[in-house]
Amino acid sequence: MSDGAPVLAVEGLRTSFGAVRAVDGVSFSVRRGETLCIVGESGSGKSATALSIMGLIPRAAGKVVDGTVRLAGRGDLRRLDDTSMAEVRGRDIGMVFQEPMSALNPVFRIGSQIGEPLRVHRGLSRREAHERAVELLAMVGVPSPAQRALDYPHQLSGGMRQRAVIAMAIACEPALILADEPTTALDVTIQAQILALFEDLQDRLGVAMVFITHDLRVVAEIADQVCVMYAGVVVEQGAARDVLRNPLHPYTQGLLGCVPRAGAGGTSRRLNAIPGTVPSLAALPQGCRFRSRCPHAFARCAEEEPPLLHQGGDGRAFRCWLTEAAA
């Protein structure tokens, strides 16, 4: 399924908002037909990573300060000017966000919004773009697509709106879809429909996907690879199956323990909660960022921040002194 050179390769990405380092050295790559999930809690830097890739960090608020974002056929996106970057967005990379209304203009019909990138990037006429928009709506499973294309966003349900946004994202047959919590606002049966739709589109179009979520269960469902982020850094990454079955970082272990399931905690009937809260990025502890909440922390964790330690050749890596010692 995944072969050849990566579609997207991110290397040493760092993004600052003033003194706050929201993304502090993130590296990963994703190939054709592959899904990479970035999972984390609020403040982990997962959304800032997405915005950094797309060049959408608001200038007044912050900037990407280091690293490369290489997209196949486009080179390092950080070197592109605004015009080229606008071309990349919508043509080479399709975007889907949590709240479909934020991606849809309330005063334009659905069909004309889906057709817009085709007119702008592909030079299609208004009528051609409209016809293609109807086809795209059918492709993403919107019933009566010809009628829906004439609707305004408020006339569609949340699930249908998200399908329309996905139709817009794939309009120019992008090499990569970047989806930030695309199913979080949806009900579980609709979420299942949308996840199945993404997989179907990947099979048909071979598109690579970066999928950002807070839900490890969604990761277990769809990911080939996973990056677990905590306080701005990747604390563990690798093949999703390996990371979920055999987590090496105490944070990944802790997150998995928090996921409710029948009979968790045995007779005591308690979840294995991680104590404390996510630290503020403005006041990170010295050493390992997770150490104040880590049940295994020892002296070295307070002195020195562990680097990303690689294990084997299959991209498995983690940031923990303890696991290094045990390995």
Binding site: A192, L195, E199, D215, R217, A220, I222
Partner: peptide, 14 residues
């Protein structure tokens, strides 16, 4: 339709 940690591909069976 509920995704779960241990079962893969729930959404496909939905």
């Amino acid at each position: 339709a509920s995704p779960s940690l241990d079962g893969e591909g729930h959404h496909r069976r939905a």
